[in-house]
Structures are given as structure tokens and as C-alpha cells.
């Protein structure tokens, strides 16, 4: 990577450019934290800079609003992502390592689903969920998410698994390793960065999703964070401080997860994980 230094000025402008872009990227983050400590009057007078006194009680309010929903959200996100990836890794292995009769057709069966708009499916899906008796249960969110995640995840993982060197598979086959052993001992460890990346992308997607919980969950004690915050947003006089405190609390689990998987994630996206 170390190419010859052209000039100090050129280097300075590169850093300047990136820092300006990063500055813009961090504005929502900064404003969320900043506004979360204000009341409405402070917010309208001075949204950009911190102003005293800090309204820590916003966080108490926000916590009372969504605290009980964090477990629901985490359960739905974790369960659906775990199952999605287990099935997608095995499925992608099938497409990457075997040319079976009908493989091409089957691959099309999965990938073409990416082109079908989910919004057109909402009512038939709702009918299906109701008739299976899943309405008003977390499985109404989890199972369709697992099914819906297969297309994109299999598509990405197949490209990745195809490039794992053949020698590794040969070695384990000579030792009499079964297909499942190949997946567990070669595919999973070799694709860890991309599996981690896909996991984080799906968890972020689940965390932001508000349409299906709005549609499928009736009981308030089952509800997830995104919907609760939507209700808070829709209150008659919007309290910006409380709302942003709520969103800050909502992002804490993601921040924690990210701290643990940061290396995996940056490596996964940078390792050419996603390609055409």
C-alpha cells in the first residue's frame, strides 16, 4: 500500500476532504446526542450547541417509553438473523460447490425475489400470517424475515464461498469429512468477515423496520422499539429532547454490538465481500 509520497500538500488535501465528508456524516449523530439533553425551548433557540441546564430527565422519560421494548426488539432481530444466516450459508454452499441438474434454475428462484416489491406483498402476507395463527406473535416478524433474507444473503455468500481454494475442500474430503463438516470447518471460518457483515446489516435493518411490527403486533407488551418511538414522534406536541433521548437509548445496543464486531465488519466490507 505504501506508494511514494507525492507531496505534503496533496496529503493534507486528502485528509481535509475525508474529514469534511466525515463531519457531515456525524451531524445526525451529534445532533441526536445534543438535542437529547434539551427541552423544546432550548432546542428551538439553539439546536446546534449544548445549552444549560441539561435535561437528564429526558432519558428517564425515554427509558420508560422504550425500555421494556428493547428485549422484544433484540429477540426478534437476533433470532431472525441467526436463522437467516444458518440457512443462507448452507444454501450458498450448495450453489457454490455443486453444479446439480437444475442448480441454475433454483438460483434464479431465489435471486429474482430481490426484484419483487415487498409493499405489494403486504396484504397476501398478512392473510397468510393470520391463517397460520402467527398474528400478534414475534414469529410473525421472524419467519417472514428469515424467508425474505435468503435471496440477498445467498447471493452474496455464494460469490464468497466460490473463491475459497479447492485444496481446503480436497484435504477434508480425503480425511473423510462429510458435507456438514466441510461447512463447519472450512466455509464458516473462512467466511466469518462476510457472515459478520451480513449479520450486522440485517440487524440494523431489523432495528429500523417499523412496517411489519405495526402490521402484525397488537399487544403493547410485544411491541418493538421502532414502533414505540414512532408513537412518541406522533404525540400532539413533539418533545424533541425526549424523542432524541429515546433514539439514543435505542441505538445503545447497536453501539455495543458494533464495538465487539467492528474489526470483523470493517474487514468484511473491505475484503471484497460483496461483489457482482
Amino acid at each position: 500500500m505504501a506508494r511514494k509520497v507525492r507531496s505534503k500538500t496533496a496529503e493534507f488535501f486528502k485528509h481535509l476532504f475525508i474529514c469534511v465528508i466525515l463531519l457531515f456524516a456525524f451531524i445526525p449523530f451529534y445532533l441526536m446526542l445534543n438535542i437529547s439533553l434539551k427541552d423544546n425551548e432550548q432546542f428551538f433557540n439553539n439546536p446546534w450547541l449544548p445549552s444549560l441546564p441539561f435535561h437528564w430527565e429526558n432519558y428517564v422519560y425515554g427509558w420508560n417509553y422504550i425500555g421494556g421494548k428493547i428485549f422484544n426488539t433484540a429477540f426478534v432481530a437476533m433470532t431472525s438473523v441467526a436463522f437467516t444466516l444458518v440457512f443462507a450459508v448452507v444454501g450458498a454452499y450448495f450453489f457454490a460447490r455443486f453444479k446439480m441438474p437444475g442448480s441454475k434454475f433454483l438460483f434464479l428462484v431465489f435471486t429474482i425475489l430481490m426484484m419483487y416489491p415487498g409493499v405489494a406483498n403486504m396484504v397476501p402476507m398478512f392473510k397468510l400470517i393470520s391463517s397460520l395463527g402467527l398474528y400478534n406473535s414475534h414469529w410473525a416478524l421472524i419467519i417472514p424475515a428469515i424467508a425474505g433474507g435468503q435471496a440477498f444473503n445467498i447471493y452474496v455468500l455464494r460469490n464468497f464461498i466460490e473463491e475459497i481454494p479447492q485444496d481446503l475442500f480436497d484435504a477434508i474430503e480425503i480425511d473423510g469429512g462429510s458435507i456438514l463438516q466441510q461447512i463447519w470447518h472450512i466455509v464458516v471460518p473462512m467466511s466469518m468477515p462476510i457472515i459478520g457483515t451480513l449479520a450486522i446489516l440485517s440487524i440494523i435493518g431489523q432495528w429500523n423496520n417499523f412496517i411489519s411490527p405495526l402490521l402484525y403486533l397488537r399487544d403493547d407488551n410485544l411491541q418493538v422499539i421502532s414502533v414505540a418511538l414512532l408513537y412518541l414522534d406522533g404525540e400532539y406536541t413533539k418533545q424533541w429532547g425526549q424523542l432524541m433521548a429515546g433514539y439514543t437509548i435505542a441505538s445503545i445496543p447497536l453501539v455495543v454490538m458494533f464495538l465487539f464486531c467492528m474489526k470483523l465488519f470493517v474487514r468484511g466490507l473491505s475484503a471484497g465481500a460483496i461483489k457482482g
Partner: peptide, 10 residues
């Protein structure tokens, strides 16, 4: 990567 974890609604 960090700004990705901020809720989209924000």
C-alpha cells in the same frame, strides 16, 4: 461505519 448504527428515523 459508525453513523450507520444511528436509527434511520433520526
Amino acid at each position: 461505519v459508525i453513523p450507520m448504527i444511528i436509527p434511520a428515523m433520526v
